[in-house]
Design a protein around this nucleic acid. Structure first.
Lengths: 338, 338
DNA sequence: TTTATTTACGTAATCGTTACCGAAAACGAT
DNA sequence: ATCGTTTTCGGTAACGATTACGTAAATAAA
């Protein structure tokens, strides 16, 4: 707190504070020699401008916020890494807010960020079907915001996602080609854009491969693992048990593994499985898990890049844009021959 | 940016700015009724005090920083979640800085945080054996800092760790009790306190169980997975191959799984494995991985709590303290009978 | 030489809040 | 009725930086 201020620096240099300040901005309005003199002493005294004074005056914080539902999840962790790497390069600071899938919290965070704490926001939604008036407020106020992964489908915003529909299609087609006739689908019942798109891909693939649509095989899961586990258990014990399963979310696939273990079902003999997942250990599971792997790091990086180009341009509201970065299909044993 | 200010609020209320300000601090120096009036209009106009102006004036930022080596790692992700939960409860903001095991970055971050951006720091080191003069500077300047997991061993700081020595001991003892005679140990060669303590536990357990110490079985690994993989490969192909392995870090155990797969070695028949790990999928691996599971969330939470109690007390430098939260030994198949 | 222009610095206002202090008004005690 | 206290509010000066503007000196142009 008792750090050195620009005033003391100026006094030691026999300069005015404004001249010293100009040395730090790259103002043309200063003699290069005196600038050097200032910077030299600043370094010696370990002076840095007070960030809050600077932010107040400049009305810029050099700070961005990430708002997301969860962090103990390899996809989001990697996305954060991508975002942070760009921010670090640009000399920006990164605030992080976790909603834990709580829409009220999400709203509260956003409401707060209105008031100038950050220059921009990166966000992955907790639920795409909630009121989004607060988002529109954000845009009106001129706070740039970029969505990644979990986005609003019907809002003219900047979005970075993976090719969810195509990936859902490809996953389902793969199971069909492996000979599955009754392919189940696990998704989150929350109104998530990505879940819907993946499901749409699944449905299209069923149709294209002449497989009948059975609503019993499409399971809307929730945030509650216990509940999900019982849903999956019910599915796997039903008279017309599926022989293939496409999971939209990693944790649902893992629950399925547990359920199969408990029910003495063999993967892939009794049930072939493929899932969206960024698990590093997918190849090491028993059996190794076939995955649709999202380019999480790249998604984060791209989202951050879009935000920063906007910030550098001084743009207030970003023109709507959809960037898609493709996922990779990693076929492993869980969907393989036996 | 063109947000409403306290001045406009005051004008609308026919009050002075100072009175309005008092309504937001819980100053006794204000009539409860006028306070209500102020708060009501503030809510209506969606006014919040400008955080940077407030921070500048109060010399408090209500912000903390987390500095850590990595995030795409379940331990750190969970720790962050613990920290964030406490911060959210206290109404603090959380800045995040990733060092990627780069000591220079670590220093740079800390240097910057000197200058009043945050009220406190939570930190997990990149390497415990580097110069720590910058840390001492921090403490002198009166910026509270709490270390978790990766700490400086010989600095009088506040540290939150798990019982690394005992856990290393217990893991090794477990392998010995399973009949292993040649127990290898993988650790990170960086000068990490936790690695040293775990290794010390390993050495003590060897001694207590009458097992000879073989330096060939103690492998110092690095940050480079490729290099580590070849080290592990060499170990497993050496004439006197180990029959047990205690890994200090999750990723080293996973590399060992891969190496065993490649070398056609069976776990646990040819090699019993146990590792420090917070992998959610440990039970689902092939075979399921015996782990020492650190209470990551609790460690983060405790570290944050310690920091906040200090902040609330207005303490400048925290009295040195070591808090230990025990890990749990989860015995699974990788170290089991076959 | 005179005038115009550039260069390099200083003065002072400003960003939006909060804290110190003084003072009017209201209240109670004598 | 007088005097002291409490309550409640306002004025003003910070907090530490940035920046529009003014200005003297130095340089160039006429």
């Amino acid at each position: 707190m008792e750090g050195i201020t620009i005033k003391q620096l100026a006094k030691q240099l026999n300069l005015s504070v404004s001249t010293v300040s100009k040395a730090f901005q790259d103002s043309y309005d200063i003699n290069p020699q005196t600038r050097e003199r200032v910077l030299a002493l600043a370094k010696e005294l370990n002076y840095e401008p007070n960030p809050y004074a600077s932010s107040l005056r400049k009305q810029k914080s050099r700070t961005i916020a990430i708002i997301l539902p969860e962090i103990a999840n390899n996809f989001f962790a990697l996305a954060i890494r991508g975002i942070e790497s760009v921010a670090q390069e640009k000399g920006f600071h990164v605030l992080i807010y976790l909603t834990h899938e709580d829409h009220a919290k999400e709203m509260a965070f956003i409401q707060h960020l209105f008031h100038g704490r950050v220059d921009g926001v990166l966000m992955s939604l907790t639920d795409g079907n909630q009121a989004h008036s607060h988002i529109e407020q954000l845009q009106q106020k001129g706070l740039p915001i970029v969505f990644f992964d979990r986005i609003y489908e019907n809002l003219p915003t900047v979005n970075v996602t993976t090719n969810d529909f195509e990936s859902g299609y490809a996953a389902t087609r793969h199971l069909a080609q492996q000979g599955c006739r009754r392919i189940a689908h696990l998704y989150l019942s929350k109104n998530l854009s990505i879940a819907n798109r993946r499901k749409a891909g699944y449905l299209q693939a069923l149709k294209d491969h002449g497989l009948p649509l059975d609503e019993e095989l499409i399971i809307p899961c929730t945030d509650d693992p216990t509940h999900n586990y019982s849903l999956i258990g019910k599915l796997l014990q039903s008279p017309a048990r599926p022989d293939g399963l496409f999971s939209s979310f990693e944790k649902l696939a893992l629950l399925t593994y547990q359920a199969c273990e408990a029910l003495q079902l063999s993967i892939p003999r009794d049930l072939r499985i493929i899932s969206f997942s960024n698990l590093e250990t997918a190849p090491l599971l028993n059996p190794s898990l076939s995955t649709i792997t999202q380019p999480a790091f790249e998604i984060g990086k791209k989202a951050a890049s879009l935000l920063f180009t906007a910030l550098e341009k001084g743009v207030q509201s970003l023109p709507s844009e959809d960037v898609v970065i493709n996922s990779i299909l990693d076929i492993r044993n869980s969907s393989g021959r036996f």
